[in-house]
Design a binder for these strands. Sequence first.
DNA 1: TTCCGACTTGATTGGTCATTCAACTAATAC
DNA 2: GTATTAGTTGAATGACCAATCAAGTCGGAA
Lengths: 189, 189
Amino acid sequence: MHLFWEKGYGSTSIADILKSADVNSGSLYHFFPGKQDVLVAVLEAYRDGIGEMLLNPAWEGVADPIERIFKLLDRYRHSIVETDCTYGCPIGSLALEIHEPDPIVRERLVENFTRWLDAIEGCLDAASARLPADTDRRELAQFVLTTMEGGVMLARTYRNVGHFDASVRQLKVLFERLLVSPRATTNDN
Amino acid sequence: MHLFWEKGYGSTSIADILKSADVNSGSLYHFFPGKQDVLVAVLEAYRDGIGEMLLNPAWEGVADPIERIFKLLDRYRHSIVETDCTYGCPIGSLALEIHEPDPIVRERLVENFTRWLDAIEGCLDAASARLPADTDRRELAQFVLTTMEGGVMLARTYRNVGHFDASVRQLKVLFERLLVSPRATTNDN
DNA sequence: TTCCGACTTGATTGGTCATTCAACTAATAC
DNA sequence: GTATTAGTTGAATGACCAATCAAGTCGGAA
């Protein structure tokens, strides 16, 4: 029922939801006070699924923490390609679409971002021996998110994954120049 | 008449435009076939004003090209602070908000981004002597835009400029590690 | 069997919104 | 002074949409 949010909040009518979920308006309003509460529920489901649905599949068989970061970005790349550069990170799109968000909605968006950042920071912590001692790892994790969201935006606007790739490549440059240990990242492409 | 687009396209009703511009619907439709054409006109005006309204004020009295890049980012920072972290880059917001953009609208968005990138690339070209010879300057310019848009998104969502600052700081780290000449950027903060 | 609460149905309501239109004004051309 | 044209007015139109509600269905408890 919650897999159709690539359309945006405003552009998704209740009728769309009803059709897609094959229920009637009355049933929906029996469970949700209003449209916004559906959004909140979706954001909570998304938040709780980040590990299971996003990180685990992306990181299967990948042990190196830095490699994991770029594997995750590669997963977003796949979403972009699969949707003909129409994809936008659901959270990012909503974050910019909702202009006067209710505190509850904004809080759910923040939670989603924060979980994502926690995951990346975990990778950086695991790789801390290879990073300069004075590296602010939380901040660097935020920068990875910044790069992902910005790259997705450019790829979507230009309808060209190349712009996402370029962002990731530049992030890789930063990591290469940051990492001190012998082996840098992975097979650089 | 075109200064009220910080609300988003979908959330801005024709009635809002009419009130803000103090005209009647008939007059508006005398000049514009429809709402979308108003958007296109606004995007064109924005595109044509990038130099005059954005770059020139930001770069007044700043000669160093790298410093100019961060001065421009600082200008966005001001917009964020002035709007209590409600600000979103108009182009970026529209780029993510419009989910099935008419080719004309998307083209105007692209033009806006491209002009911005041209300006940054110009700075990088001017500083090319200080950059590694193999630097892809167009790509690096794109990365600056990525950082700006991603940083704005995070600052808006978290309602906290600190996230924008963090992104800029990390970009600065990249530049510091890229620049080869004696003096790095400017007064680092 | 009866009753009860959980859940469903879908037509209806009230509101908003983009767009239209026929009537109007004013300024310029001839 | 009449005709023409550009621009204006704002009520009316029709579409869409979130939310409501009275009338149902159904399974299980007593």
